[in-house]
Design a protein around this nucleic acid. Structure first.
Length: 675
RNA sequence: GACCGUGUAGCUCAAUCGGUAGAGCAACUGACUUUUAAUCAGUAGGUCGUGGGUUCAAGUCCCACCGCGGUCACCA
């Protein structure tokens, strides 16, 4: 008998990884290759199950097959193995009647998870299990990592997402769901091409301007162009440029969008969107498209029209209901917003319902707020919600019968929006006005408002033919059709927080460095003091971070003021400040008010302030702190007190920082406003 | 971001009032040649997420931090 793994219980072979490495050597000693080049496979497990479905129990055949796959289970010392490949499983039967001593010895080096090749004949065991009666077996790829427990599988949700490959090996549900996703995307593509004549295109992911939807973007930087880009939040404006160019009558794109917002069971920062634009169609045709597409996918991928999800049964067949947003709101609340023409009146009506809107909310924003709060969740069966208010639809064409509304609809299922569509706005003057509205909103602090895209308006000036546009969240459709609980279940590699190593977690920044040593060149480059009127208010800012744990307001103010005074008085950032002189009607001058805003944030505790401080110093951002030592007696005692402390012993009360807004945001972004 | 929960062997999970960390599967040694989560006998395997604190004594109590999940908020 050729050598197999050492059988010495005193070695470290109880460590599964070491045991497997020993067996890997055993494979080599037997003349095998633990990482083989190939194997002449001629059948797949699932195909065999189908082909021999009618083979009676206890039947032996002479049909020779060569199969390959991963060992998922071993019984009776390897006499029975379950072999899994992408198509399914088949049992391998290793018996001395048909295998030589040398072949049987190879089993000693097999473990769960190994990829092996098997040649043999087809049989069905008396107990009814389709099997390959092996004549030879061969290691193809040794697996060094042990598989999760066979009965419960891998249930740790984090690990399932982080190590999707393990999840896929052991969890059939995960495999099925993610494969269905592929089929759904494929069916969408086929439908849009064959039924709507769509031409698939790709448009930029890196956008110089944010537009096409309302969402916070990711920002990135191109070195040689020395320019910021935004990962796209929507492809819309580029797709319509293609329509303007006459590239095709119908274009569509299936691709990722990126939105810098929360993560939830329904939201992943990068998600897949399909958008389509077709000339000489309008919002009504697009509603047909939603229905047709969902029904096509349901039939071709699932061959059914009822789907269980989230405790509901959703039936996608037939003609879907179409109701206006205002009508639905009225059904649920009794309020007829169409009869309300004044925004103030609308806000009052909204308030009465206990729904929150901004104090200056427009009429359309009020309607939308009530709709979202009171109606959305109830839209379980497929429905098209039509006639969206103009106030919330900056890219949709005004309704042909009512200027307060647009030709925009959204399709809902199981209480979720799954598609959004409209008759595209193609009047450049109107589009220009809508952009201006968005810019105003942006200036008022709405980070989700679109940016002014002059070139897009120019494109409209060349003429966008009458066009219908449509977009759908692919992940959400997948969730509904596969009955999944979480968007992460339908994404192969969902976005997760990166794992930090222990040493990275503890602050390793050099806090002994003084920012007064800031290079003069940098300071000079920013030296624009004086012409504050030309400076962007948002470009830089002061930030004060106070320790939330301090409950004495006097102390908080004292600490903040100390830190701020120090920052302004002593830092090399001096030339970056900009001071404004105000004058009142009496002629009295109010000088030296900072052009840049001062934001007051709160930190949970001293530790968090220490972290912010360390990060700021590491980034070269001026930062002055105030610790509790500085409240004891006179300066001399204070200096002595702090001199005895290090690390967490230092109790921070407040920090003052000054610098470029984006850099500060990166450091203080997770802190909330101090109120 | 807020609140609630959670983290113990490779995997799935226990551990009562604060008092010697256990089991099944996987692994290892052996028995067994028609099993189906195979079975039987034995062996080994632990920084109880990390760091502090309280205590004679901490997986358990306190504090901080890290990760994950759920709910809420924003959004598709």
């Amino acid at each position: 008998m050729t050598s197999s793994a050492p059988k010495d219980p005193t070695t470290a072979l109880t460590n599964p990884f070491e045991a497997r490495k020993a067996k890997l050597k055993g494979v080599i000693a037997q003349g095998g290759n633990p990482y083989a080049y190939t194997f002449p496979r001629d059948a797949r497990a699932g195909d065999l199950q189908a082909r021999y479905a009618d083979l009676a129990p206890g039947t032996e055949t002479q049909d020779k097959v060569a199969v390959a796959g991963r060992i998922m289970s071993m019984r009776n010392n390897g006499m029975f193995m379950d072999l899994m490949d992408a198509s399914g499983k088949v049992q391998i039967f290793c018996h001395k009647d048909t295998m030589s001593e040398a072949e049987l010895a190879k089993l000693d080096n097999f473990d769960l998870g190994d990829v092996i090749g098997v040649k043999g004949t087809i049989r069905r065991t008396p107990r009814g299990e389709l099997s390959v009666r092996a004549t030879s077996v061969e290691m193809l790829t040794k697996s060094l990592q042990p598989l999760p427990e066979k009965y419960h599988g891998l249930t740790d949700i984090e690990q399932r997402y982080r190590q999707r490959y393990v999840d896929l090996i052991v969890n059939e549900d995960s495999r099925n769901t993610l494969r269905k996703r592929s089929e759904i995307v494929s069916a969408i593509r086929t439908y849009l091409q064959s039924v709507w004549g769509g031409v698939e295109v790709e448009t930029p992911m890196l956008h110089p301007l944010v537009g096409g939807a309302a969402a916070k973007p990711f920002v990135t930087y191109h070195n040689t162009l020395d320019a910021n880009f935004y990962l796209r939040i929507a492809p819309e404006l580029y797709l319509k440029r293609l329509i303007v160019g006459g590239f095709a009558d119908c274009v569509f794109e299936i691709n990722r969008n990126f939105r810098n917002e929360g993560i939830s069971p329904r939201h992943n920062p990068e998600f897949t969107m399909v958008e389509l634009y077709k000339t000489y169609t309008d919002v009504n045709d697009m509603m047909d498209l939603t229905e047709g597409l969902v029904q096509y996918v349901a039939k071709n991928v699932f061959n059914k029209d009822e789907f269980e999800v989230g405790g509901h049964v959703v039936n996608v067949s037939g003609k879907w209901a179409r109701k206006s947003m205002c009508a639905l709101v009225q059904e649920k609340t009794g309020i007829d917003f169409m009869a309300i023409h004044d925004a103030g009146e609308a806000r009052a009506a909204v308030k009465k319902l206990g729904v929150h809107v901004e104090p200056n909310a427009k009429w359309g924003e009020c309607v939308a707020a009530v709709f979202e709060e009171k109606v959305e969740d109830t839209l379980i069966q497929p429905i098209h919600v039509t006639d969206f208010p103009l106030d919330i639809s900056p890219l949709a064409k005004p309704h042909r019968n009512n200027p307060r509304l647009t030709e925009r609809s959204e399709s809902f299922m199981r209480g979720w929006e799954v598609a959004n569509m409209f008759t595209e706005l193609n009047d450049p003057a109107d589009q220009r006005a809508r952009f201006e509205e968005q810019v105003k909103a942006r200036e008022a602090g709405n980070e989700e408002a679109a940016m002014y895209d002059e070139d897009y308006v120019t494109a409209l000036e060349y003429g966008l033919p009458p066009t219908g546009g449509w977009g759908m969240g692919v992940d959400r459709l997948c969730i509904i059709l596969t009955g999944s609980a979480n968007i992460r279940d339908v994404i192969n590699f969902p976005t997760l927080k990166p794992i930090k190593k222990a040493e990275e977690r503890t602050s390793s920044y050099d806090t002994s460095r003084s920012f007064a040593a800031k290079p003069a060149a940098v300071a000079a480059a920013h030296s624009q003091n004086g012409d504050w009127q030309t400076l962007d208010d948002d470009a830089r800012r002061f930030i004060i971070v106070v320790n939330e744990k301090i409950d004495n307001m006097g102390r908080v103010l004292n600490a903040a003021a100390h830190a701020m005074a120090g920052l302004v008085g002593q830092t090399a950032a001096g030339e970056d400040f900009a001071w404004v002189e105000y004058k009142d009607a009496d002629g009295s001058v109010h000088p030296s008010i900072s052009h840049y805003p001062t934001i007051i944030l709160k930190g949970k505790n001293s530790n968090q302030l220490a972290k912010v401080r360390a990060e700021a110093l590491a980034a070269g951002i001026p930062c002055v702190d105030f610790t509790d030592d500085m409240t004891l007696g006179k300066s001399k005692e204070q200096v002595a007190s702090l001199a005895t402390k290090k690390g967490e012993a230092v109790n921070y009360m407040a920090l003052a920082l000054f610098g470029d807004t984006p850099k500060l945001r990166a450091i203080t972004g997770k802190l909330s406003l101090y109120k």
